[in-house]
Design a protein around this nucleic acid. Sequence first.
RNA 1: GCCCGAGUGAUGGAAUUGGUAGACAUACCGGACUUAAAAUCCGGAGGCCGUAAGGCUGUGCGGGUUCAAGUCCCGCCUUGGGCACCA
Length: 830
Amino acid sequence: MKYNPQEIEGKWQKIWEERGSFHCENASDKPKYYCLEMFPYPSGKIHMGHVRNYSIADVVAHFKRMQGFNVLHPIGWDAFGLPAENAAIQHDTHPAKWTYANIDNMRAQLKRLGFSYDWRREIATCDPEYYRWEQLFFIKFLEKGLLYRKKAPQNWCPKCNTVLANEQVVEGLCWRCDSVVEQKELTQWFLRITDYAEELLADLDTLEKGWPERVIAMQRNWIGKSIGAEIRFAVEGGGASIPVFTTRQDTVFGASFMSIAAAHPLLDELIAGTENEQAVRDFARKILNTDKRELSADSLEKEGMFTGRYCLNPFTGERMPIWVANFVLAEYGSGAVMGVPAHDQRDFEFARKYGLPIRVVIQPDSMPPLDPASMNEAVPESGRMVNSGEFNGLDNEEGKIRIADRLEEQGLGKRTVNWRLRDWNVSRQRYWGAPIPVVYCDACGVVPEKEENLPVLLPLDVVTRKDGRSPLPDTPAFYECACPRCGGKARRETDTLDTFVESSWYFARYTDPNNSAAPFTPKALAYWMPVDQYIGGVEHAILHLLYARFFVKALRDFGYLEASEPFANLLTQGMVLMDGKKMSKSKGNTVDPTEMIARYGADTVRLFCLFAAPPERDFDWTESGIEGAFRFINRVWRLAAELIGKVPAQEPCSSTSEDASLPKARELRHKEHATVKKAGEDIAGKFQFNTAIAAVMELVNLAYLVKDELLGDEGGRKTLGSALSTTLCLLFPIAPHLCEELRQRMGSQSLMADRPWPVYSDSALAQDMMTIVLQVNGKLRSTLELSAGTDAEAIKAEALADANVRKHLEGLTIRKVVLVPGKLVNVVAN
RNA sequence: GCCCGAGUGAUGGAAUUGGUAGACAUACCGGACUUAAAAUCCGGAGGCCGUAAGGCUGUGCGGGUUCAAGUCCCGCCUUGGGCACCA
């Protein structure tokens, strides 16, 4: 009996499929459990990262199923997007053809791995039956005022030929191709994610139990709430005033100059007719032409130029020179900063460089009196207010409140909150995406498509352009249309939606994926949502996970569902590395899952991915590691092969204490039950598959050690049969084909896939002997083997009688004897 | 600068949340089987000293709390990640 993974894996995949073993229904008397992995982008082939991600999810799905849950475990394809479009152009084919071919290929690979998906629920986002609902949402967003068009400078990737959302710009570079992102003025569609900023932030508190801390921290950071005040500074000699956002209104008495961004809307008006108008204009242009990445670099030298104009400090009446400065961001706050050099490091450097006045207005209690002349850096710390008129002597936190009150009383400003989060630009200038369902009509303006006309189909009979630009603006058959309102001639929007829109609601579509009358039914959503366990890479910590959270809140407000959060629990799995580096084709350090499956079988590949490290951590792919996994699988196979025919086909944990009369049988039975407990706890509580597997390995190792002796005893054979059966059950979520095959060969009629998780018994866990550790002054000196019932006094007596303990107590006086029941005795002496 | 993590054998990693540090595996060494090798089965192993029994030492560094610290507290060092001239 030889282990042949290729043969048995194909066999069981077929049987499971025929029997619909992993199908699930939208109603059940079992409790529901929704287990979801981030769906793949159909790039062509599955890589090891996918295998790891889906192996983790599959263990969870199987385990929950075995524990009696109705488990939804679906899969689909994030099928629109630029890489497919580029690849198709490169290979002289159509993106649709390319994408569907990739899906076919990758689906076959996933099936070859034996994952327990309900394939009836498979979706592809490029299918009109999917994106039509997204177009419906677009119209609803528009109706609710959550979607608007705006002309503004946008992040533009020259290589991808499209705009990018803020979340898609990483340190000034395109997240996808690393090109330097440029600014380009365009009219674009924006989703008002900022309307939900407060809720997106607050609800992170509800995720604290289920999400990794760092993902929550990253989202908090990204949303970036700042509480402060807006203060208006009147411009001297003109009706205009400059609003400023500050979190430090308590320092307003120290504001000695004003700095504004080069793109500030008032700049032209301010400098018109002044003597250095041209110089300031040139300076501002220079800043605007510097790329964003350079401007945000740490090393940027602070530069500025005086505009020649002044504004007035509303609290001191002081004339504050207005400067244009290269460090002021036009898009944050109001694009202007009040300069308080004593208490802000940037302002300090700027004031020193240009000889602007520095005035201390906060004196920390812990510091000697501050003197601007001798300061060499700003002091942002808390303290007592000074040089601040009637506010002198107040704690500055109290001062923030009092100054804000004063601003509001006198109409000089108000309390405000500023967010780092920007609205989400969802327009893309590329072809392979969902069409935006609006038309532009000369008579009616911007008009949404009628619901009954959806979907607005993406035309497939176009020829993509070599330069990557969308063919849609050159396709009259697509853009020429009738206005849905007046019936007159109109032009259809030719931009498509950001593909992150598709991934913001796919988890909801899985609940009712074949519904052709609605995106989903409220009943199915109410039953399945939220996702109980979501599993994927941490690279989506902000992008996808933030958008999806926003979408669910918006859909909730449209009345579709009750949940406010899509994912109750999140597991971010680590990467599969090679030689400590990320696998990549260009570096040539990749491992092809298909090749590994061909060599070792799917069960071995799955086992290795789960055993190499805890799921959150990165791990290195190693040849010896996969060999080790293969060796263990074979070891289980050989154990079973030897026992089949000699031991009865037992159910797991079915041997009795009478069966286990031999000491080694008792030991094996104890281990069997202890392993059920340990493996169950490791998988359920902490997703520590590596230690769960280690525990099963221990059980297998023990079975090897005791089998020869137990085979000669009838009760021993039963004990072995039970232990083997248990081993297969525990291993089933990890290496399902192996376990089904061996269970069948043992003579069992039912399928592993229909079996519950084994249940251990406390009585089998009880030990008759216990090991007591003996310490003298906290150092290990000896151990004792005592029967479990030994009482405390007897244990102490035994401990003090131990030869090695007595040796170490020689010449010392015993001060205290500490006893930890069932564990140790520590004799304290000096 | 701010916010999260992480530092344990040659290696990946364990340690019931304060109670025998190094489970399990990889690599290594030894034994059995074999004409031989591979595979397999069994065994060894943190470091130093010792034939052994045993002793000393050991979880990034320095202090502390405790009968007892990888685990808790204080101060550092190194390192990974996120955000950032955000006013």
